[in-house]
Simulated assay, not measured.
Amino acid sequence: MNRPPMTKKGAERLRTELERLKTQERPRIIAAIAEARAHGDLKENAEYHAAREMQGFVEGRINELEAALSNAEVIDVSRLSAGKRIVFGAIVELADEDSGDELSYQIVGDLEADIKQRLISVSSPFARALIGKSEGESFEFQAPNGTRNYEITGVRYEE
């Protein structure tokens, strides 16, 4: 079985979310269901149906997190010795050769990806375009809004 990679930091973040869901959200929803049940007729009880829907969502997320954490290969990125070559876990500094903008992304596992935090999935087209390249290289990337040209200005590994 192929185990999906996950950074140590990402695994810790998911464990924290899992713990919060189990110790705070689950009991809160159970209490909301009990309170809504006390109001009587469940067929027309919006609070009950909303709480049950939320319970389904939370239980689904708990299952997803437990499965991901048990199947993942957790990698301590700070121990990788890829040098200036880009592999999983790399924090990549880029210069957009067209606009001059400077960007920074870390290549992480699928479940821990979050573009707002500049964490891109190892399976994304952009990460796949970066992997194997080295600091100092330039490359062309076919983005949805057209071709972009980037220079890799830095590669580092830290947790």
Results as ranks from 00 to 15, higher is better:
Asn2Ala: 08
Pro4Val: 05
Lys8Pro: 03
Ala11His: 07
Ala11Lys: 04
Arg13Thr: 14
Thr16Phe: 06
Glu17Val: 12
Glu17Gln: 15
Leu18Gln: 13
Leu21Val: 09
Leu21Ile: 02
Leu21Trp: 10
Leu21Asp: 04
Leu21Lys: 00
Thr23Glu: 15
Arg28Ala: 14
Arg28His: 06
Ile29Thr: 05
Ile30Thr: 01
Ala31Trp: 05
Ala34Thr: 06
Arg37Met: 09
Lys43Pro: 02
Glu47Gln: 12
His49Val: 03
His49Gln: 14
Ala50Glu: 06
Ala50Ile: 01
Glu53Asp: 10
Phe57Trp: 12
Gly60Trp: 09
Arg61Trp: 12
Glu64Lys: 14
Leu69Trp: 08
Asn71Arg: 14
Asn71Tyr: 10
Ile75Leu: 00
Leu80Thr: 00
Phe88Thr: 05
Phe88Gly: 02
Gly89Trp: 13
Ala90Asn: 07
Ala95Gln: 14
Asp96Arg: 02
Glu97Leu: 15
Ser99Thr: 15
Glu102Gly: 00
Glu102Cys: 01
Leu103Asp: 04
Leu103Arg: 10
Gly109Val: 01
Asp110Val: 11
Leu111Asp: 10
Lys116Asp: 15
Val122Thr: 09
Val122Gly: 00
Pro125Tyr: 05
Phe126Lys: 13
Ala127Ile: 07
Arg128Lys: 15
Arg128Asn: 14
Ala129Arg: 11
Ile131Asn: 02
Gly132Ser: 04
Gly136Ala: 04
Gly136Tyr: 06
Glu137Cys: 13
Phe141Gln: 04
Ala143Trp: 03
Asn145Cys: 00
Asn145Met: 04
Asn145His: 08
Thr147Ile: 15
Asn149Cys: 00
Ile152Cys: 01
Thr153Lys: 10
Glu158Thr: 08
Glu159Asn: 15
